[in-house]
Design a protein around this nucleic acid. Structure first.
Lengths: 127, 127
DNA sequence: TTAGCAGTTTATAATGATTCTAAAAAAGTG
DNA sequence: CACTTTTTTAGAATCATTATAAACTGCTAA
């Protein structure tokens, strides 16, 4: 399995559950967005063995901490994650109620005209 | 009271509770951000009579629906609202864990370089 | 002014995503 | 294999928010 090394290098033990979740999350062409419950469904469809909900939460947070997933700062009852961890923007389609990725190259530069120190800017997250 | 008319015009009955909440929210120089619990505290400090938590929720949602408040799309355990309903941006200060307003005039134009139809663009919310 | 209806408030229960807990299982190490 | 550490797990706990249903209030028409 190609994920065993990746996990070990990150200091995460390559358990059966983590490897299965890796398959579901990363073994595909395109990146995608998901909630924990959507991920649980995908896991169910993908494997016969059941993974506890707590484990799904644990794993997603572990992967996020290691930088393999990114949390999307959308205001929703459920938290969204993104397997695209490159620096990019999101748009939320109000009608279809789903997220759209826009790469940085799809969006022109955003210029902050107000005077803010460099240090200050680095600790700010654009919403 | 100056808020009676405003409420009536919106189709909201000017109840004692709503007027008190109006005082707390709108009778000030600057706009501000708040969570429901922060608002509840402010109400407690402002008046002697108690307003039920359910009423605070109801009122905030009613005001939001009428356009007097704006929900801020930040991912947090609590929902943030803004009394500044003008079209503007938010930055989230990761270190101080608080929101900062940036007026549109403080931020240069954001150019979407990807081809999206006009109609599509209107139903998108920038995150 | 008052009767009655619609809108509002309220305490409390319900909901639902997420986190906590503590015990069992699995992985790594010598 | 023995032993330590990490991980998994089911279920309980948490906490913001919403639903409920009864009491109350504001409004309006007679």
């Amino acid at each position: 399995m190609k994920y065993i090394e990746k996990l070990r290098k990150s200091g995460l033990r390559p358990t059966k559950q983590r490897l299965q979740i890796c398959e579901v999350l990363f073994n595909r062409e395109k990146t995608f967005h998901f909630t924990i419950n959507e991920l649980e469904q995908k896991i169910k469809n993908h494997t016969s063995s059941k993974i506890s909900l707590a484990t799904v939460y644990n794993t997603v947070h572990a992967f996020e901490k290691k930088g393999y997933l990114k949390q999307i700062p959308i205001n929703s009852s459920e938290t969204y994650f993104d397997t695209n961890v490159t620096d990019h923007h999101h748009f939320y389609d109000l009608k279809e109620e789903k997220l759209i990725d826009l790469e940085n190259s799809d969006v022109g530069p955003i210029n902050i005209l107000k005077k803010l120190t460099e240090k200050r800017l680095n600790q700010l997250k654009f919403l």
